[in-house]
Design a protein around this nucleic acid. Sequence first.
DNA 1: AAGTGGTCTAGACCACACC
DNA 2: GTGTGGTCTAGACCACTTC
Lengths: 231, 231
Amino acid sequence: MKPNHSWQSIQAEIIRRISERIWVPGELVPKETDLAKEFAVSRGTINRAMRELANAGLIDRKRKAGTRVALNPVRKATLDIPVIRLDVENRGVSHKHMVLMQKIVPAPALITGKLGLATGTRMLHLRTLHFAGNQPFLYEKRWVNQTAVPDILDVDFSQISANEWLVQNAPLTTGDISFSATNASKDEAETLGAKIGEALFLIDRSTWIGTMAVTNARLAYAPGFQMHTSL
Amino acid sequence: MKPNHSWQSIQAEIIRRISERIWVPGELVPKETDLAKEFAVSRGTINRAMRELANAGLIDRKRKAGTRVALNPVRKATLDIPVIRLDVENRGVSHKHMVLMQKIVPAPALITGKLGLATGTRMLHLRTLHFAGNQPFLYEKRWVNQTAVPDILDVDFSQISANEWLVQNAPLTTGDISFSATNASKDEAETLGAKIGEALFLIDRSTWIGTMAVTNARLAYAPGFQMHTSL
DNA sequence: AAGTGGTCTAGACCACACC
DNA sequence: GTGTGGTCTAGACCACTTC
């Protein structure tokens, strides 16, 4: 039989019923077999349409208890975190980077704590300034666990940034990200061409492969930076 | 026949092959029918496992051209944007809010521009201070298009915050969000109990129902705020 | 115990991209 | 034209939850 409805059109109709309050928050909605009859499709198609809405937090589904419209719909914003070079190039300007510091030293407790490593672990420390065109764009302070990615010790970071090397050579890490705001320190202000105390957008990211800590990066963006997405 | 593999275990195995570089970035991976044979499952199960990886940006799939491991895996971070009250309560403290200003005036061009409304449109303007426990948490400056949600004019905002009323009564909006950092103005500093110039985390959100602009909110968080998520 | 969603199957047709 | 992924079907069994 030829389908009269695609899963996407059914999903759109369900969204319409929720947004127009035909189905009210907290209310039980018809079960899959009933909806399958109504739309004259198979249950699998209904399931496909509803599953994504459940993942998105719009509806709550429980076996036996049925499906209800979520009382407190949690909006989810998806942020793409590309390689810094591509992020810059997508803005229509060229990217270059400059390594300001590269050394292997015992990491501060703040870093080993975040990564769950023993205090005093010797790690590779890098400070890199990324440019968008001729403007400083991003000041990256990174600590890398040599044990997790020993090959990194042979990399020439004037050719490829640590960020890009890690994405290509340690893909599929898990991690935490936090976003915040900070006043520029003297070091940050001078490096980024900002004023001391100017508000900077900050990303702090720690990544692991399985349970092995790989790296922590503190990314301070030049003043005026905005991270943008849609809902 | 009883399945030997769930789609999740197959997905995990595919991820393993990519992360251990058994399948190299840019390389063509076996087609669905071949993988179905290998894992002794039906093609639908393979498709389910791969579809989510394609959505996540890990692989690129094209009809006829086949499936390839993505060259530049874009990490996607998902941010949950809950109602402010729940955001606060999830931190283990009580929430209350205080309406500092409520008036209907012609909106500034900055706002009408963002929302695509005629300059000088009269809109409902609200300034609300949200507390986490007894600490100022978030200073919200909001503009609401009365035409889109006329019922909002009857709402008592001392009982329910505009944020929460809109989530419940104008759900499923589309919108833009931007995240940035700003130095606290005198007004913001006094309201949030911060110092003038202190770095504040800022969210600017505009939402629409279809093509009808609903609201713009500028959320300035108290110093020290972090937005956190995992990869 | 019983009802609901979660998953899987084997097959089919279609849409798109490459030829 | 041809090959690949995208989708749908009709049916089945299972897992979880509530009763």
